[in-house]
Design a protein around this nucleic acid. Sequence first.
DNA 1: ATCATGACGTACG
DNA 2: TCGTACGCCATGA
Length: 111
Amino acid sequence: MITEAVKMEISTYQKIYNIVRKIPAGRVMTYGQIAGIVDRCSARMVGYAMAALKEGTDVPWHRVVNSRGMVSLQEYAGRDLQYELLKTEGVRFSQNGVIDLSVYRWENGDP
DNA sequence: ATCATGACGTACG
DNA sequence: TCGTACGCCATGA
């Protein structure tokens, strides 16, 4: 029988992915924000979960940015792609390459 | 088991 | 504003 215990056994990674999947196009969430929603999860775990994603994933990883509203770190494979995808979805960047979080931040991942 | 690393965040000087 | 230090804890050597 399907029990609630089954749902409780979803891994932290799956919880993170589940939240990210709910971010609509043209919106973003921060690592710390997701970490705050998922119990016993730190921002690093969110970043690590993103790094563990594969190509064929259905998780919109590009909608996750750091607390400054920028694409994370200096360079990593897919950084430019992240900019492209966000621009395609209508997210506007300032001249500094920063996203205005007060406009584009998505406040809820698991209503 | 320990050590180093990491798509991060906050605190502090 | 910027750099450094530390917390966080999964993952791999």
